[in-house]
Simulated scan of single mutants.
Amino acid sequence: MGIYYHQSYSKARGTCNFGDDINPFLLGKLFDESIIDSKDVCLIGIGTIINDRELSRVDCYPRKVVFSSGVGYGSLDSSRFDDTWDFACVRGPLSAKALDLPEELAISDAGLLIPELLAISNEKVDKRYPVTFIPHVESDLSSGNGLQDLCKSLGIKYLSPRVESKEFVVEVIRSSKVITEAMHGAIIADAVRVPWVPVKFLVHEPFKWKDWCASVNLPYNVSDLGLEFWDNRRGNFSNFKNAWQLFKRSRVENALSKVNLSVEPLLSSDSIFEKRKNALWDVVRLINERYAK
């Protein structure tokens, strides 16, 4: 298959992650079947995958086409980028700068197109949740039980990034506000015009957040939920360690409550959102014209 995205996490963990595993659906909907099935052209999709480790896995392709991917998570030797590489667009201006690309190629993350491709209409989905919290997938796996409990006590909907893709998008639409540690939680919220608040708990990579926020003309301003805690899944914590985890959980609950009550949510302007979406569609047409057989 002529597409590449970050798969090793899902394979190693035996679970899915929306931000990675949406790629086959997204790219399959956008691009001609001859490109998707190509042995010569590789489409590199959404995610923070422009680094030496990830890109070494596509060296075998005669042609590599980058579509809204982002730089990060490791070293990057720019000398690898010869005339077999086609940077159609990248996630944001920081990625473009790191790659020495023209500013006009810094469009945005193509996750902005997902709700449209899923044919989900905001008007047909009722609002059910005043606030929804979306953890990073690692936080969901390591601390999900405790996070769900504290969300329940605060009257906040908990949404795992490991649910099926359409369910994930619909649940975001059902929310009046999203508080999210997962960046694709913010991207989908912005795409369906739901205000969102970025937070840090267990996993946070500032560069990718700054990169994407800049692409939609929004400030990078993350709220820290404080102390990390872990679920006692195996039941082998000592009494002291268990008490310490519960204490930290209570501090996170207080921090999340404060964020919910006092932090102003973000949402890109309608004009910027439409401009970025239209630019992404222009790139899709260009790639199809250039590479479809």
Rank of each mutant, 00 (worst) to 15 (best):
V131Y: 01
N239S: 09
D190R: 15
S160M: 07
E205I: 00
R63Q: 13
D20M: 06
N288E: 06
L227S: 15
I22C: 05
V194D: 14
E54G: 12
I107T: 11
K210H: 02
K248S: 01
V252Q: 01
L261K: 09
A110Q: 03
L30M: 02
I50M: 00
Y61W: 15
S10Y: 09
S257Q: 06
I187C: 14
K241M: 11
C60N: 15
L261N: 06
I50C: 04
N122G: 09
L55V: 00
E264M: 15
I134S: 00
R91H: 09
S139D: 07
L26M: 01
W85F: 04
P130W: 08
I22T: 03
N23T: 04
A182P: 04
I35A: 00
N51R: 13
A106E: 01
S262R: 08
K166I: 14
P130Q: 12
P265C: 05
L141N: 13
R193M: 14
K157V: 10
V192P: 08
L154K: 10
A292E: 05
S121N: 07
P102K: 09
R13M: 15
L101N: 08
V58A: 00
L30Q: 03
L76F: 12
S69I: 09
A214I: 01
K208H: 00
F237D: 02
E103V: 05
P265D: 04
L266R: 11
W281R: 06
S139E: 08
S238Q: 02
L159M: 07
K39A: 11
L94N: 05
D52V: 11
R276M: 05
R80S: 13
T48V: 08
A255P: 00
L218W: 08
S257E: 08
H184G: 02
V197F: 06
Q245A: 00
G70C: 11
P195R: 13
K277D: 09
V131E: 02
L113D: 03
L26Q: 03
